[in-house]
């Protein structure tokens, strides 16, 4: 159907109800403790701050038991830190990550309110890695935590072919309301402050 004719069906006379403006809600505290608590509640975990991040990541790679692939933004950091045992995402068909045991991603932002991590077209140009890998290790800058989701959304990009919020691993409760981790995507998600 023609767009104009379609939209004409919804046209209304009179002044529209006003837009309510920006929502000024609760000021959530930007605390990693809060983030960790919510993340645990949605099936993920936050690596202990006491552990040196490079060592934590290297240990996870050494225990991966298979192919380890890092998204470009994560790969840059790993290379700079001298972490070994991973391969860059490279180029090719999106299905080439089907046998990846551990995917390493770089998140630009973390939200304490809901444990959401932000991935954009810059940090994660190819989305399939994030969903095909058996498990995910997410590096997030220690200073990139905000309190509330409203603040997180305000900082999300307005351009780029995608941005994705991820809160914990893949899950389902479609069979008898029993929680199962790893419905389609990652079966585990660990966040490391970098």
């Amino acid at each position: 159907m023609d767009e104009a004719a379609f939209l004409a069906r919804f046209r209304r006379d009179g002044a529209p109800a006003p837009h309510p403006g920006r929502f000024a809600g609760h000021a959530w505290e930007a605390s990693w403790e809060g983030f960790a608590r919510v993340l645990a509640g949605v099936g993920g975990s936050l690596a202990d701050a006491a552990q040196e991040p490079r060592a934590a990541v290297q240990a996870a790679i050494d225990l991966a038991g298979g192919r380890v692939v890092a998204a470009p933004a994560a790969g840059e950091r790993l290379a700079a830190a001298g972490v070994s045992g991973w391969e860059p995402a490279g180029n090719g068909a999106p299905g080439r990550f089907a046998d990846v045991q551990l995917g390493i991603l770089w998140a630009e932002l973390a939200v304490a309110e809901n444990a959401a991590l932000l991935f954009t077209a810059e940090s994660l140009p190819e989305r399939s890695l994030a969903f095909l890998a058996e498990r995910l290790l997410v590096l997030v800058p220690a200073g990139a935590l905000v309190g509330g989701m409203a603040e997180g959304v305000a900082r999300a990009p307005r351009h780029g072919h995608h941005h994705t919020w991820m809160s914990g691993p893949s899950k389902t409760a479609d069979i008898e309301q029993t929680l199962v981790i790893g419905a389609h995507g990652a079966k585990a998600l660990v966040v490391v402050r970098w």
Partner: peptide, 8 residues
């Protein structure tokens, strides 16, 4: 608090 995946 939010779905596991919220994709734009």
């Amino acid at each position: 608090p939010i779905t596991s995946y919220t994709t734009h």
